[in-house]
Design a protein around this nucleic acid. Structure first.
Lengths: 162, 162
DNA sequence: CCTATAACCAAGTAATTTAGTCAAGAATAG
DNA sequence: CTATTCTTGACTAAATTACTTGGTTATAGG
């Protein structure tokens, strides 16, 4: 799981798409204009998103993109991993023969952690983010926690460990 | 919060350090050798880790690095953000004047999500990862979940949403 | 004091990734 | 037929990452 500005662009664009689609598909030039991202760069990102089935494109006038499935069924993790090349964290490629003494020990731990992050991001859907937005639209209150429940549990664990 | 191979190197090295320190400090050449990372690259990473107080270095023969504080008090988030330059996600720099129509809308949402990831990674300490390791050392059982509790809650949320 | 060790520091470089440009082609609504 | 919009590919500039080189300081042990 990699997390760079590239993934941020993709999530931002997908959110823009999800929020602005009413009836007509949303064009890339609209998104590019609203979010200040190069259209051609968006084209590359959406090419990958389309291949993963996260968006559907229709050509011609009145065309554009729409979500490949319900926003509730698209996770942030889906979007981010769609636009990133898969990385193998271990230099031995899954074999445990890296070193003699401590073979891939910390690699396994990182792999495990990486999986946890992946799981976390798979637990946040576009719909949750959209709902968050609509709840705060027009209001002056700052954005609060997205998914309070497991965050509270998490901080409970944290305080119990410390 | 950025998440690249750079952060992986840092976490891996910190884990190696935490696992292999018994009485003597651990030298970078040891870590470099065990983990297959360039020593000079480690020096750069540890320079940043030291400036954040995450490690203490002692020079001369018998010298090396030790943890700046208890492994229970060092989170994975600490390590990762220590070796990365801070990024401002918005191109307007906190001002809400990016666009006319949808000012920084999705930016706010990304900011919120980014904060969540940060919180999540702040909830996982080096000690948790170490304990995970020692529990599985010598055993053939595969690694299971690190922090089962909030993961279970998380998946519960997920299934309730879907 | 001398020497080896190992942290510290800084500049530069190769490789990779990111972000963007440019130039086409293909589908389709009107 | 034409304008629109996706789709594709190749190419380029910028940024980041990973690594190299060549030092300097501090210190333990002889």
């Amino acid at each position: 799981m990699r997390l760079t500005t590239r993934g941020r662009y993709a999530v931002t664009a997908m959110l823009d798409l999800a929020l602005n689609i009413k009836k007509r598909p949303v064009t890339l030039s609209e998104i590019a204009d609203r979010q200040g991202i190069s259209q051609s760069y968006l084209e590359q990102l959406f090419s990958k998103l389309r291949k993963k089935g996260l968006v559907d494109g229709t050509r011609g006038p009145g065309g554009g993109y729409k979500l490949g499935r319900s926003a509730a069924l698209i996770s942030v993790g889906d979007v981010i991993s769609a636009v990133n090349e898969p990385v193998d964290a271990t230099q031995c490629g899954g074999q445990k023969n890296c070193r003699g003494e401590n073979p891939c020990l910390t690699h396994d731990l990182w792999q495990e952690l990486s999986l946890q992050i992946q799981n976390f991001l798979s637990g946040v859907s576009l719909k949750e983010l959209m709902d968050k937005e609509s709840k705060n639209s027009g209001a002056k209150a700052p954005l609060t926690s997205l998914t309070p429940i497991h965050m509270q549990v998490n901080s409970a664990i944290k305080t119990s460990v410390f």
